[in-house]
Design a protein around this nucleic acid. Structure first.
Lengths: 149, 149
DNA sequence: CGTAAATGTCATATTATCATGACGTTAGAG
DNA sequence: CTCTAACGTCATGATAATATGACATTTACG
């Protein structure tokens, strides 16, 4: 039970680093993967998807890498996670009833759907700017600092 | 993103039926599987696990089946779901930081861990009695009624 | 140019979850 | 006692998520 998939978590971590380095130009996948302790090629594929969706920009060739496509306070966590999740299911009836609406609700409907709503609302209202400020210490912080100074 | 696994959902559905039929004696797996539209053998294995854990009782042989091991208001949803979930992960840091505690919290810590707590609290505080009362209409309700009257 | 360093993509491997089928074990009913 | 209907368990298969590796493509720089 992990609410978000592993892939989404990778995406959030990488995006947070990119937000912290906003305006420092693109960051290499290799650096991100190393600092965040995420499989390199898998992260590459993941970030490519986010570029295709328009959340990130990718720069190819030498001095390439990924960077935010928009200012960090305009990118919500929802956008980052959305390509990797099926949000229909978070709102699914706890008992799997197809017709579980406010009208014909199962006994758990109100409480359970409220939980799903909270998750979605959090993701929609929180931006990368929120994640970028404050304390973060990555698994291999040193790799990041070595590469970006 | 489905918070609970398919298996847990199966278990909750079956347990709800058992709670509704409390004191009517054991219910066959075949009847449950048919009414809830769940694979028969898979449900069998799932409910056996719950019996081994002490949430359900199983009766073998003719006139066998499954029934609640305790009164339905004393069985929490958490108990039913727990054998099939890894609850450590729902409380994991959104950014995957191992040291994300109240002390050295990542920027999302407060909001995100609150969401996980809410989920767990709901499961711990809600009992089968809560699910048993109220409106429920299973995929194949008829199968249930045919078998239990 | 040509080379090196980066992303992009594809095929494949690995793993966990979900599901099926065969068979063994138990216990009630005649 | 035997038959039969139920649970119990094991081996196996199917599928989706995760991960790896090889190679193609792009681009800066000498």
């Amino acid at each position: 039970m992990a609410i978000l998939s592993q892939t989404s978590e990778y995406a959030l971590r990488a995006a947070t680093v990119l937000a912290q380095h906003e305006a420092h130009g693109p960051v290499h996948v290799a650096v991100l993967a190393d600092a965040l302790d995420v499989p390199r090629n898998y992260l590459s594929k993941t970030l490519s998807q986010l570029a295709r969706v328009g959340v990130l920009d990718s720069v190819r060739g030498k001095h390439g890498g990924f960077l935010l496509a928009r200012p960090r306070n305009q990118i919500t966590l929802y956008e980052i996670v959305e390509p990797f999740e099926r949000f229909d299911s978070v709102r699914r009836c706890l008992l799997g009833q197809p017709e579980c609406t406010a009208k014909a609700a199962c006994p758990a409907h109100a409480a359970w759907s409220a939980l799903g709503d909270r998750v979605v609302r959090f993701l929609r209202h929180t931006t990368l700017a929120d994640l970028a400020k404050g304390h973060t210490r990555w698994p291999n912080q040193a790799a990041l600092e070595a590469a970006t100074d």
